[in-house]
């Protein structure tokens, strides 16, 4: 057997990890269920409530502007809760992975399984959010999905969820103590959430800040999703998708290698 074959995850074995998470969440279904409401509350509170004070953003209603941004933000937050916190505690406190590694499961299977689970969960949220956004737009108005392209925002959201999950797992492997979370949240997640283009267009930002923002994944997630839901797709979307695919893959490979080093020594 070559070392490459040893590095590659097995689909069958990685599914056991998904199954394990399903068993966990059968007990705490409320945690999953409540996750649906986070972006919905923001949509109602900021999009419609505060949005009532905003006439339009570049010709879009504030609700239509913010909905794809909130979808991206919910993919990021889902990845952080499930990916970062959960995996950190399984890795360092509960030693769950050490137990699993005493079986034929390998680090690659565990990493791949955790990723699949994150993507499944993110996809459920994305689908539910898009349905609600559509219903709200039709029933309460103003419409927030403005073009048939919006159908593609679902697979795009799955990609965004996968990229953020890979990044979250990757970042987790660098954390050594619980206080490190504050740094990641304070200097990474929160700035991306606030300045990544979810709540206002990034061209409002000073040039220097805007350049920084354009490097971070949140910006590309929003720029992938917003043209799809608002029907303003052009060639630039390919660049954003490529960014998400490449950074996600790189993060996954790094995460797997670092987990191997942490768990097998």
């Amino acid at each position: 057997m070559t070392s490459l074959a040893l590095m590659l995850p097995s689909l069958r074995r990685s599914h056991h990890m998904v199954e394990r998470n399903l068993v966990v969440y059968r007990h705490v279904w409320m945690v999953i269920f409540s996750g649906f409401f986070e972006p919905l509350f923001y949509l109602l509170g900021i999009g419609l409530g505060l949005g009532g004070l905003v006439p339009d953003v570049g010709g879009l209603s504030y609700g239509a502007f913010i909905a794809p941004g909130l979808l991206a933000a919910s993919c990021m937050n889902g990845a952080i809760t499930d990916g970062m916190f959960n995996i950190y505690f399984k890795l360092h406190h509960q030693k769950t992975y050490d137990g699993i590694l005493a079986t034929p499961m390998r680090v690659a299977d565990i990493t791949f399984g955790e990723m699949q689970w994150a993507v499944v969960r993110g996809s459920l949220y994305a689908a539910a959010f898009l349905v609600i956004v559509w219903l709200l737009g039709e029933v309460v108005g103003p419409p927030m999905l403005l073009s048939p392209w919006a159908v593609l925002s679902f697979p795009a959201a799955v990609l965004v969820a996968a990229t953020f999950s890979a990044m979250a797992v990757c970042v987790t492997t660098f954390l050594r103590k619980v206080q490190d979370f504050d740094i990641v949240i304070g200097l990474g997640v929160m700035p991306m959430f606030l300045f990544g283009g979810t709540f206002f267009p990034v061209d409002q930002l000073p040039d220097a800040v805007r350049w920084v923002v354009q490097v971070v994944p949140m910006y590309h997630a929003v720029e992938t999703l917003r043209p799809l839901t608002t029907g303003t797709v052009d060639g630039s979307i390919a660049g954003h998708v490529a960014y998400l695919v490449l950074t996600g893959t790189a993060a996954f490979v790094v995460a797997m290698r670092r987990l191997e080093r942490t768990l097998v020594k």
């Binding site: 505060l50 504050d182 200097l187 929160m190 606030l194 930002l205």
Partner: peptide, 26 residues
Amino acid sequence: RGSLFSSFLQPTMYLLAMGLGIGALV
């Protein structure tokens, strides 16, 4: 130290993003 840092950082970021960013739209 980290906590004091975030005590200043958080409100600054929120006021910049929401107060000025969304504020400019409002």
